Amino acid sequence: MSSLRYGWTTGACATAATKAAHTALLTGEFPDPVEITLPRGQRPAFALAVEELADGAATAGIVKDAGDDPDVTHGALVRATVRHGAPGTGVVFRAGPGVGTVTRPGLPLEVGEPAINPVPRRMMREVLGDADAIVEISVDGGAELARRTWNPRLGILGGLSILGTTGVVVPYSCSAWIDSIRRGVDVARAAGREHVAGATGSTSERVVAELHGLPEDALLDMGDFAGAVLKYLRRHPVPRLTVAGGIGKIAKLAAGHLDLHSKRSQVDFALLAGLLQDAGGDAGLAARVREANTALDALRICAEAGLPLGDLVAARARDVALDVLRGAPVEVDVVVIDRAGTIVGRA
């Protein structure tokens, strides 16, 4: 059983801060700690790091604890400032310093709205009850932190998003990355893009963007999650997909792995040897590939023999991708690069 400690999302922190600020606005006293109920029924309590009460406004701040997850927002100070709203206006959300604003269609929020996602909004409305209130959420240093997230590419400018569907951060969860892939597809579709690319890293992304002249909003931060890209495009197709990556990652996809992380899949050198023999390579060369240390080593061995291992791997990876797409109207091509960013295989 894992001993890793769970944490709390920015949405949970913003909700608790909102509840504390609203209570202080009504009573003059901040509840500390402040308890909220999460969507799955957990009832965490949060200590307040900031308490500010002024004429017509109250601000509470909570330091986000992401548990043992390497979350970019771990330790960030999430603030909520609550003011009375005009009668009948309900809850109005505003982006304070460090919280982004939506500038492109395709996200679950309208263009011009603060980047406070639907579930955190619902949680905040629940703690406010039937109050008419203006809620401004801010994150200290959020604009700088946002540069280390997918927000700029998704068209969320000026800061972070207030996120979370359960309120809980699961250590080393893949869910946030996969959610960003899905939002990237949504943004590309809303922009009318007919060609998107999923790359395993920054070098392959640069190569494929230059190769096809793709704009930033057509580039999906695939990383190791090839399966997430393919499965989402199966349900939400774009006419063309390019998959790009290093020979090792694409060799894993060629073997049928949809999670390309080194801890969850390995290069199948027997498969590479088999591809080589099917293409006319002799048994001696296949044996050397089977005993290679790395996929790059196998590539070098084949290049010296004049055989296009990169093309063979790309073709097999493309077949796997098309199998996952299950007939969805998506054309697929695959680009394989070496460490220097040179294209060494295409299909």
Rank of each mutant, 00 (worst) to 15 (best):
A251G: 05
A199D: 07
G256W: 04
N151Q: 07
V119C: 05
D130I: 06
P87Q: 08
A251H: 06
V119T: 14
V78Q: 03
G167T: 00
V135I: 12
T15M: 07
E205S: 15
G90Y: 06
D68V: 08
I181C: 10
A228V: 12
A49V: 00
D179H: 14
G245I: 00
T81C: 09
D224W: 07
R122K: 13
I116D: 07
G7R: 01
R346H: 11
V170E: 15
G227I: 01
E52C: 05
D221V: 06
A45K: 13
G327D: 01
R193Q: 13
G75P: 02
L233H: 12
G345Q: 01
A305H: 12
I181S: 09
A188M: 08
R193L: 14
Q42F: 00
S161A: 12
L260T: 06
A80C: 10
A286I: 09
D282C: 12
T342K: 11
D186Y: 01
A328V: 09
S180C: 15
T23C: 15
V267D: 06
P215D: 05
A286S: 12
A54C: 04
V50I: 08
C174F: 02
L219K: 04
A279L: 11
A95T: 03
E216N: 03
G100R: 08
I178K: 15
T59N: 00
P120H: 10
M1V: 13
L26N: 06
V91S: 10
T10K: 09
L312H: 03
G61H: 04
G223T: 03
R182F: 09
G90D: 05
V332E: 05
G164W: 11
G142C: 04
A16F: 08
D217S: 13
L38Y: 05
P118E: 03
P171F: 08
L48D: 08
G345A: 03
R290S: 14
L25N: 04
V344D: 01
A279Y: 15
S3T: 14
A287Y: 06
P171R: 01
I134S: 00
S2A: 11
Q266A: 15
L38A: 10
Y232V: 11
D217F: 10
P31Y: 10
D55W: 04
I137Q: 11
G106M: 10
D338K: 05
L299G: 10
G96H: 04
A298K: 00
A115W: 03
R79P: 01
G7A: 10
L160R: 06
A131R: 10
V119S: 07
E331Q: 14
R339F: 05
T89W: 04
G67C: 03
P87R: 13
D333N: 03
